[in-house]
Amino acid sequence: MTDLERKIYRIIYNMSRFRRNPSMKELKRKTGKDEGTIRKAVNNLVTREHLTWDKEKKPSIRMTQVSMIIRLHM
């Protein structure tokens, strides 16, 4: 996992604890990266199965490490 992927993963995890879902705008502000870079990092996390898409609740993702459902507003 790259530093950016780890950072995004932690942001999603921390925000999910408060039942808040990070928007793309929040992810851009918290990481300092552009939308394309963030999307690529999220796709890498999905590919490596650290996150999985919840097909029933689009655009939701499931964190495989902690079994929580989170929505990314992209």
Results as ranks from 00 to 15, higher is better:
Tyr9Asn: 01
Lys40Ile: 13
Lys25Trp: 10
Gly32Thr: 11
Asn44Ala: 14
Lys57Pro: 00
Lys25Cys: 13
Ser60Arg: 01
Arg6Ser: 02
Lys33Pro: 05
Ile12Pro: 02
Arg39Trp: 12
Lys33His: 12
Glu26Phe: 10
Thr64Ile: 11
Ile38Leu: 08
Thr31Glu: 03
Tyr13Gln: 04
Glu49Arg: 11
Ile11Thr: 06
Arg48Met: 12
Arg29His: 15
Leu27Ala: 09
Asn21Tyr: 15
Val66Trp: 02
Glu5Gly: 01
Ala41Val: 06
Thr31Lys: 04
Lys57Ala: 05
Phe18Asp: 11
Arg19Asp: 14
Asp3Pro: 03
Lys7Gly: 07
Met15His: 12
Tyr9Gln: 02
Thr31Tyr: 00
Gln65Ser: 13
Lys30Asn: 14
Glu35Val: 11
Tyr13Glu: 08
Arg39Gln: 10
Gly36Val: 02
Leu45Glu: 07
Lys25Met: 13
Arg71Val: 11
Ser16Ile: 05
Met68Thr: 12
His50Asp: 07
Met63Gly: 01
Lys25Gly: 11
Arg62Ser: 10
Pro59Asp: 03
Thr52Gly: 08
Gly32Gln: 14
Thr64Gly: 01
Glu49Lys: 14
Ser23Asp: 12
Asn14Trp: 10
Arg20Phe: 09
Lys30Met: 14
Arg19Ser: 15
Lys55Leu: 11
Met1Arg: 00
Arg62Tyr: 07
Met15Ser: 13
Gln65Phe: 12
Leu45Gly: 11
Lys33Ile: 07
Thr2Val: 03
Gln65Thr: 13
Lys30Ala: 13
His50Glu: 04
Met15Cys: 04
Lys55Asn: 08
Val46Gly: 05
Ala41Asn: 03
Lys55Ile: 11
Thr47Trp: 09
Arg62Gly: 06
Arg48Ala: 15
Ala41Trp: 05
Leu27Tyr: 15
Asn21Phe: 10
Leu4Glu: 02
His73Val: 08
Arg62Leu: 11
Thr2Gly: 03
Gly32Ile: 09
Arg10Tyr: 09
Pro59Trp: 03
Met63Tyr: 00
Ile12Phe: 11
Glu26Asp: 15
Leu27Arg: 15
Met1Phe: 03
Gln65Glu: 08
Pro59Leu: 02
Glu56Ser: 11
Ile8Arg: 05
Ile38Gly: 03
Arg10Ala: 05
Glu56Met: 10
Leu27His: 13
Ser67Trp: 14
Val66Phe: 07
Thr37Glu: 15
Glu49His: 09
Val66Leu: 01
Arg29Asp: 15
Glu5Ser: 06
Arg19Asn: 15
Arg29Glu: 14
Glu5Ile: 03
